[in-house]
Amino acid sequence: MTKQGNDKASSFEAVRARLLGLAYRMLGSRAEAEDVVQDVWLKWHLADTRAVQTPVAWLTTLTTRTAIDRLRHAQRERASQATGWLPEPWLDEVAPSAEELALRAAEMSYGVMLLLERLKPDERAAFVLHEAFDCDYAEIAGILERTPAACRQIVHRARARLQRAGAPSQRPDPAAHAQIVERLRAALEAQDRTDLLRLFSDSPEIVSDAPVCGPACASAPAAAGWVDTVTSLAQQANNAEVVSVQGAMCVVLFFEGDVVGLLDVWTDGVEGSTKIISLRIVTGEERLQALNRVVGRAAVTQLLTRIQQNPTPSITMGSDFPVDVHA
């Protein structure tokens, strides 16, 4: 490889995690984000970049524009689906990769990721660049080919739309949120319908990537009907654990060691009487692949194999890892 080729590869690898995190925030799919980053790499590799003074700006611009084009097509496809579409969860890994650390640096909860689906591609790009990646309006203007004033207005409108759609004005207290998520896990595992009813508000919003409400919901009070649905989903699993997904604690459902569901919780934040006001349910096999790669049966089997091969391994486990490797 030539010196220029080496310089190109080094420049790209230095920002690859950032580009992947940006594309994922735009598209809500790790697979699609990886495709975008691969397209950007090919264009970067083939381009005459000798006049490029700031590779990160060039690559960020190309990644954003490529993601916008892909998002326009994806939103048309998602709108035509019979069931709901939810972003792919990105699990906070036990041993964080560069991509994981980039996502943490650009923290944006799974619930907000879902609300981003309501934005137009340009709005989403401006909002993500400003809120998650700290780009100023001049930088965003260069990427979107708008004026800084127009970009400021785009971000302002996007933020207002998200707030009207239910985005929290501030992040919930982590300790209080973790406590109610743990109560939800325990109630689901115990099939304690009474405690589940206590956890939910009177009219919770339930969003799923598959039909979740059966005939019983039609005649039942709002909370009771959704609790029956969530209970039925939990009955299809044989274990429930709490894990960290994109900085927030969520309930993951397992069946025979494989992840079969993710429950993302939004609470009202009322001190002393916190209630679940919104629940996002992910059950699609493709969207759960990232979770299964880290905490599913195959991942655990590989871990146990390494432990058996090395009786005194040096492995650091997170407190929320859902398997006792010494059992």
Rank of each mutant, 00 (worst) to 15 (best):
R171E: 15
T316M: 11
Q53T: 14
E286L: 03
L91P: 14
S97N: 03
R183A: 14
A299H: 00
E145A: 13
V294P: 08
A165M: 00
T64A: 10
V245C: 04
G28Q: 03
G142K: 02
D48A: 03
A158E: 10
M26K: 05
R161P: 04
K43C: 07
E107P: 06
I281N: 03
Q170D: 13
A57C: 01
S244C: 01
Q153G: 11
D7V: 10
Q308R: 08
T283L: 05
S319F: 12
I140P: 05
D195T: 11
A132E: 06
A126F: 03
E139C: 00
A23V: 11
V323H: 11
S203H: 13
Q4N: 15
Q153P: 01
G166S: 03
S169I: 11
P313G: 14
A14M: 07
W85Y: 05
Q309C: 00
V56F: 06
V212T: 09
D173T: 07
L71V: 11
A290G: 02
A220Y: 01
A31E: 14
A298Q: 09
H326M: 11
Q308H: 13
L291V: 10
G261M: 03
T267R: 09
V282G: 02
I206A: 12
A327G: 10
C250T: 15
D122H: 09
A9E: 13
R65Q: 15
A187C: 05
L22W: 03
R16E: 14
A218T: 15
V295M: 06
W90M: 04
A216W: 14
Q38M: 06
K275T: 06
E99Q: 11
K8D: 12
Q53F: 08
E13I: 09
C135A: 15
L196I: 07
T283R: 10
V242F: 06
V15M: 07
P174D: 13
V260W: 02
A178F: 08
R104N: 08
S314A: 14
T229A: 13
E88Y: 05
P121F: 09
D134H: 06
I307Y: 05
L20V: 10
V300G: 09
L62C: 03
A224D: 13
A106P: 04
V323Q: 06
W226R: 14
P121K: 08
R183S: 10
